[in-house]
């Protein structure tokens, strides 16, 4: 079983681990304590996925090339894009 706090997992990683947890529970044959631990991990993973699905906010950045050719990214808020779209064809 993968470990670490679920808060740092991406959706894909959390969903994949949840799949593993379910598969292990479905295979059975483990001590009760381990089943309960797996179940709790599964619930946490599910909560992580649900949270990401419900609350994720698209992050948008814009690349800027510096004089030396180095790249820098600046955050682009939704308003920025809407404003730009509104003022030009």
């Amino acid at each position: 079983m993968a470990n670490g706090p679920v808060e740092t997992l991406t959706f894909d990683a959390a969903l994949a681990e949840l799949g593993e947890v379910v598969a292990r529970l479905e295979a059975g044959g483990m001590p009760l304590e381990e089943s309960i631990a797996l179940y709790e991990r599964g619930v946490a993973l599910h909560a992580r996925c649900a949270h990401l699905l419900d609350d994720a906010e698209l992050r948008v950045q814009r690349l800027v090339e510096e004089a030396g050719g180095a790249l820098r990214a600046i955050d682009l808020r939704p308003d920025d894009v809407d404003d730009e779209a509104g003022t030009s064809a």
Binding site: V22, L25, G28, G29, L32, S35, I36, L38, Y39, G42
Partner: peptide, 12 residues
């Protein structure tokens, strides 16, 4: 499936 398999594990 998590719920169902946990129920089975507790039964075992």
């Amino acid at each position: 499936r998590l719920v169902a398999s946990t129920e089975r594990a507790l039964g075992a």
